[in-house]
Amino acid sequence: MEKIPILKMGEFLLVTIQVDMHDRLALSLQDDLTRMISQTEARGVLIDISSLDIVDSFIGRMLANIASMSRVLDAETVVVGMQPAVAITLVELGLSLTGVRTALHVDAGMEVLRSSLNDTNGNETITGKSANRDTYGSNFD
């Protein structure tokens, strides 16, 4: 059976969806990801959906589920690269994925994950090291 590969990059897991999503594939991705998060103790998950030409309610639910499940496992999820046409359709469908963080592309998504990690680390270690709390500011030049 085909599978969507999950890459490990440091503390983060990276998923690029490049095939036509059918329901069983979506469910197995959900399973594999949660297993990988707990195995690798990953702190963040980045899902690149820039190649997806539709997101219907099932795939939408999968994304929302992954975000909620990973949060329980102490990992942040960010979905990146949603196409404008897909976003418009999803809103029209009635799905706003309120619990899911988003970013324009992989770079911006990594930035979101890193800064949210810094945020929590900053809270844990009270060393006064200046944590980058600004989600937006860091890769501006």
Binding site: M82, A87, G109
Partner: peptide
């Protein structure tokens, strides 16, 4: 509102 939501889904 829909525009704002769609932009957010894209990460803006």
């Amino acid at each position: 509102l829909k525009t704002v939501t769609a932009a957010r889904l894209m990460g803006a």
